[in-house]
Computed example of a mutant assay.
Amino acid sequence: MAVNRQPSDQRPAADVVIDAELVRGLLRAQHPDLAALPLRPGGTGWDNVVYRLGGGLALRLPRRAAAVALLENELRWLPALAPRLPVAVPAPLRRGAPTAGYPYPWAVVPWFEGTSAALFPARVRDGYAGTLAGFLRSLHLPAPADAPRNPVRGVPLAARGDAFRTRLAGWDSFRDRHAPQAPDASVLMAVWTRALEAPAHAGKPVWLHGDLHPHNLVAGVSGNLVAVGDFGDLASGDPATDLAAGWLHFTASGHGRFRAGLASPPGPGEKAAWERARGWAVSMALVMAMHQPAEPLHAVGLHALSRLAGEAG
C-alpha cells in the first residue's frame, strides 16, 4: 500500500540505503515477472520505504531493523483478515526474502491511490465516520490464542501510565513554544485520571489495528475512505485502543456518527470501553501533538486534545 504523505522531520535514522537500483535487483532475483514494470519512489515513512510498481502495485521495504517485526506481523496475519474487512487493506501479494545486499524481508502490496487522511480537516474526515465504524465492527472480533500481543496496544490503560506521565512532564514547555492555545498538562492529566477509573476490559481479546490515526488512512479527493494501512501494530486486546480514533479523526458530530455506527464495542461494558478510549486518545494525541508543527500529525494531536479538554470541561 502507498499513500502520498508529507515527510516527517523526526524520522528515525535508516539502517540501510534503499534506492531504485537495489529494488530492481531484488525484483529480478525473486519476482522476475514484475521486474520490467515501471518503478518510481512512492514515499518514505518512519519504518518503510515505498516504491510504486506499475499501475497497481507497491513495494514496502523496511528501512530499519525495528520495522522488520512490524512487517512480519502484516505478512503473517493480513491475508487471513483482509477478506472479511469492508475497506481495502495492504494484504501482501508477494513476499521478498533478505539477500546479501538487503538484510530484511519485504513485500509487494496493492497500491491505493489517494492522500493521507491527516491532510484533510476533521470536518471532511467526518464523511467517513460510518465507514470507519463498519471497518472496526468487522475487525473487532475475538482473536485466536496465537494472535500477537503488543506491550503498548490493547493492554490495561494503567500499563501506559509511566510513559504518559513522562511525556506530559514536557508538554507545557512544548505547548508554550508551539501551541499556546492547547490545553495545559493539568487538564490532560484530569482526562487521563478519569479514564483510569473505568473498569477494565472484561471480554475476550479482540483483533485491533493498534495505530488507527489519520496518517494511516488513505482518503480520496472528496475525503472518502479508500484504504486502511499500516497494520504493523496489529494485535489482540482491549478494543478501547482503536475507539480512540473517534477523537483523533472527527469533530463531535462525526464522532457521534462513528459511535452510532459501532453500536456497541465487543463484550460487556460499553460505557467503560468509551471511558478507557478517552485515556488512549489523550495518550496518543499527546505523542502526535508533540511532533514539530510541520508534521501533519501535530495538527491531528492538537485537534484531539482540544476535543478531549472541551468534553472534560
Rank of each mutant, 00 (worst) to 15 (best):
Ala195Ile: 06
Pro148Val: 14
Glu311Phe: 00
Val50Arg: 00
Val228Ser: 08
Leu225Lys: 00
Val300Met: 10
Ala122Trp: 05
Arg167Val: 01
Arg64Gly: 03
Pro83Ile: 13
Pro41Asn: 01
Pro142Arg: 04
Tyr128Val: 01
His209Arg: 02
Val16Lys: 11
Gly25Ala: 15
Leu71Gln: 15
Ala122Phe: 05
Gly43Trp: 01
Pro144Leu: 09
Arg84His: 13
Pro62Glu: 03
Pro183Glu: 03
Glu270Thr: 15
Leu157Thr: 03
Leu196Trp: 10
Asp211Cys: 08
Gly114Met: 06
Val49Asp: 07
Gln30Phe: 00
Arg24Val: 04
Phe250Ser: 02
Val68Leu: 08
Pro296Tyr: 08
Ala67Leu: 11
Gly42Ile: 01
Leu53Asp: 06
Arg64Asn: 13
Val68Asp: 12
Val228Met: 02
Ala129Ile: 03
Ser138Arg: 15
Ala122Asp: 06
Trp274His: 00
Val206His: 08
Gly170Cys: 10
Trp192Asn: 05
Gly45Lys: 02
Ala169Asp: 14
Gly223Ser: 11
Met288Ser: 11
Val287Trp: 11
Gly134Ser: 14
Glu275Lys: 10
Gln181His: 12
Gly232Ser: 09
Ala281Asn: 12
Leu308Arg: 05
Glu270Arg: 15
Arg28His: 13
Arg84Pro: 03
Ala200Asn: 04
Thr99Leu: 10
Pro105Trp: 05
Glu275Met: 13
Trp207Tyr: 11
Ala163Thr: 06
Arg84Thr: 12
Arg177Asp: 11
Leu59Trp: 09
Pro214Gly: 12
Ala66Arg: 14
Thr115Asp: 05
Ala202Trp: 11
Leu188Met: 11
Ala304Trp: 01
Arg11Tyr: 09
Ala13Gly: 13
Ala158Phe: 01
Tyr104Trp: 13
Gly114Asp: 07
Thr193Glu: 15
Pro83Ala: 12
Asn224Phe: 04
Ala69Glu: 15
Pro199His: 09
Gln292Ala: 13
Pro156Tyr: 02
Asn216Trp: 06
Val109Pro: 04
Ala227Leu: 06
Leu119Cys: 03
Ala133Tyr: 07
Glu275His: 12
Ser186Leu: 13
Val228Asn: 03
Leu57Gly: 07
Asp211Leu: 05
Leu262Ser: 09
Ala147Val: 08
Leu59Thr: 03
Leu61Arg: 07
Ala198Tyr: 10
Thr166Phe: 02
Val155Leu: 10
Gly134Leu: 05
Pro92Lys: 07
Phe258Lys: 10
Asn224Leu: 05
Gly161Val: 01
